[in-house]
Design a protein around this nucleic acid. Structure first.
Lengths: 231, 231
DNA sequence: AAAATAGTGTCTCTGAGACATTATTGA
DNA sequence: TCAATAATGTCTCAGAGACACTATTTT
């Protein structure tokens, strides 16, 4: 028999769940893990786990990211989404509140399942909506993708999907993949180059087939003014 | 001796804290309560309390709103901000994660302290930053105010600060109070009246000193396109 | 009639979107 | 030289901001 109260406060477990997004061959992908434990054994879910007694929510998100995706904070940008606490969102007897995070990274490596996961893979986000994810993870995923889409409009967050040096056409493919719509290369270049603090010239160029592209690094600005608007 | 684990999960308490904002005589105010219990006995804090074992986070926010401010969901708009879970944010032995909410209402009544509060009052937001609030409530308050400021730009949320029928100048005072900057009446009227679904003509006018103002109700739109920008 | 408040129009400038051609490289 | 890709400029339209006067009511 599990006690429901240890003190004057109702007892909760607190979890973090991660919406880890990256671009692979020009498509937006999310990291999914196959659950290796009950409940929802064998079902696909967002990576995540319980917060420990001695770590902050942020620390827990970073730890799960390392455990379940092999990623460090140097690789990614992490931002809290919101918390989910419906009474029946977890079938276990404990109340479980989950704090969801959005995690963005550039060209992240193939995952090796770690922690509690039986398997892990990158899934195109437009295919993920067809998968019956565990818990309320479908809603969390939708919120995470929508947050990423919205933040590309008025912040410089798109650079989180890019390597340290990148070209304007490369940055444009990020916007196109996340927003799911094609953008005019001329208008796009004009706008991002005009936004002060967004891109700084790295003084180098790409090589490869076609005309070399000028390379940039992320500038110091975090807000985009004026914003780039979706269609 | 309080057990730290009841099961395989670390034990947390989950609280909700409310940033309740309203306009009083043209200034943005926040609801503060004086704590009637330890910890932080006698200190001003945001209203809030622990989530019960059988209620959702949303239900808990509504319940605390009723208990500590006498407000029902008909009176206000409620939106989750984010969660705060630093290891030392609460001095009690239990880990306490708090889910913060932004609550907006029109001309809310004077509070009568209820629940655990010794006292309660409306405090101008620009004076609240001078008060040494309990826990990490100063940071939560700042986040709540910033969220409200940002959302006035691209949503129709400003109507949450208005009674059911209101004039364009009245709506303008909302924007001016929340943003803390004066707006041009002509440009403001042009923009809000052009935004389809923001305002619908109520077919009535105010009476009082000066030329009567045309009254509007909130329309069905929730997003503002194009957005109104801050200076 | 005076005081108070609401309502409205124009001009200029900036940014958005539509649109095609030239430049540079590797194969 | 051809294929691939990057870079760039102009025109038109919409929205933003600056700006002053007229209209309607109460006292």
């Amino acid at each position: 028999m599990i006690p429901v109260f240890t003190s004057e406060f109702p007892v909760f477990a607190v979890a973090v769940d991660l919406v880890v997004l990256t671009l692979r061959s020009g498509r937006l992908h999310v990291l999914l893990v196959e659950r290796g434990e009950e409940p929802y054994l064998g079902r696909w879910a967002l990576p995540g786990g319980f917060v420990r007694a001695d770590e902050s929510l942020t620390d827990a998100a970073h730890r799960e990211l390392a455990e379940e995706a092999g990623l460090t904070s140097d690789d990614v940008v992490l931002e809290q989404l919101r918390s989910y606490g419906g009474v029946t969102r977890d079938p276990r007897p404990e109340r479980v509140v989950s704090v969801a995070w959005m995690v963005l990274g550039a060209d992240l490596p193939d995952p090796r399942p770690g922690g509690d996961a039986a398997d892990a893979r990158w899934c195109p986000v437009d295919e993920a909506s067809g998968i019956d994810l565990a818990f309320d993870h479908a809603a969390i995923l939708a919120d995470g993708v929508e947050r990423a889409r919205a933040k590309l409009e008025y912040t410089t967050l798109a650079t989180a999907f890019c390597p340290s040096e990148f070209s304007v056409p490369q940055l444009r493919t990020v916007y196109e993949a996340v927003w799911g719509e094609p953008l005019d290369p001329r208008n796009f270049a004009r706008k991002v180059l005009a936004a002060s603090g967004f891109l700084v010239d790295a003084g180098r160029t790409t090589s490869g087939r076609g005309r070399p592209a000028r390379l940039y690094r992320a500038g110091l600005a975090s807000e985009l003014d004026p914003p780039l608007r979706r269609g």
